[in-house]
Simulated scan of single mutants.
Amino acid sequence: MRLDTLSVLNAERAARRAAILVTDLDSGEQRLVREEALDGDPLAALLRPRLASGRSGIAEVEGRRLFLTVQVPPVRLVVIGAVHIAQALAPMAAAVDLAVTVIDPRTAFATPERFPGVDLVPEWPEDAFAGRLPPLDRYSALAALSHDPKIDDPALTAALRAGCLYIGALGSRKTHARRVERLEQAGFGADAIARIHAPIGLDIGAVSPAEIAVSVLAEIVGALRKDSAGLRRDCTGARP
């Protein structure tokens, strides 16, 4: 691999952007396809499913053998609210290889004893995203579970603006209706707000915190697999 190609690939990795290195196994020629340029690439039909699967491998195109080195950022799950559901959700999400972060400014809830081994941020979401945490992006899922608008709303706003692959919020339909009103006042359109899964989780009749956590994780995995090509729509939806 040429040094300049490696430098670009490393830069894409650091910026949490997907890319595919296409290597012609016969000639040794290489080229890098960034996710933002995939639609216009002549091999788009081949590269898109590879990006979706995240798996590298050999492919044959018109008699040429190509090796496709796929680089996809690890998916993050940011949980807002160190509540009982979050306690059950965090280890489940880690078991399916999601990088979990729990954010809650209420230090009585956000404790290492309640969340052993979890990346725990006892700060307000807006402070956490402006501080040590990397910004949300299209490879992030966000579950707002605090049931407190002062905590959840700033996180939901950030997730909508970032075009996260999944956004969910705890609360009844009445609670969500009030949430919609607040987001509309903040400048978001109906299409953007409709991306929020609320009430959060698949409708499986879940009752206990652990059951709700199962329903939330299943919904996140469904969103990831249905829209995992790394080219998610720009759904920020904020009005000028």
Rank of each mutant, 00 (worst) to 15 (best):
R2G: 02
L3H: 08
S7V: 11
E12C: 06
R13K: 11
R16K: 00
R17K: 10
I20T: 10
L21F: 02
L21T: 07
T23Y: 00
L25F: 07
L32V: 14
E35C: 06
P42T: 13
L43K: 14
A45S: 15
A45I: 11
L46P: 05
L47H: 12
R48E: 12
R50E: 14
L51P: 10
G57W: 12
A59C: 13
A59N: 10
G63V: 08
R65P: 12
L66Q: 07
F67L: 11
I85S: 11
Q87N: 11
A90F: 06
A99G: 07
A99R: 14
I103Q: 08
P105W: 00
A108Y: 03
P112R: 09
E113C: 10
R114P: 11
P116V: 15
P116F: 13
D119G: 03
P122D: 07
P122H: 05
W124T: 05
P135D: 06
P135R: 00
A141W: 04
H147V: 05
D148S: 03
K150V: 03
K150P: 04
I151R: 03
D152S: 03
P154T: 06
A159L: 02
L160Y: 00
R161Y: 00
C164T: 05
L165R: 14
L165E: 04
G168I: 04
G168D: 00
A169C: 13
L170S: 08
G171T: 09
S172I: 02
K174W: 12
R179M: 06
V180C: 14
R182W: 10
R182F: 08
F188T: 10
D191I: 06
D191V: 04
R195D: 05
I196T: 02
A198G: 04
I200V: 14
L202Q: 10
D203V: 04
I204T: 09
A206C: 11
A206Q: 07
S208F: 03
A210Y: 07
V216G: 00
I220W: 03
A223H: 09
K226T: 07
D227S: 13
S228A: 15
L231M: 14
R232C: 01
P240S: 00
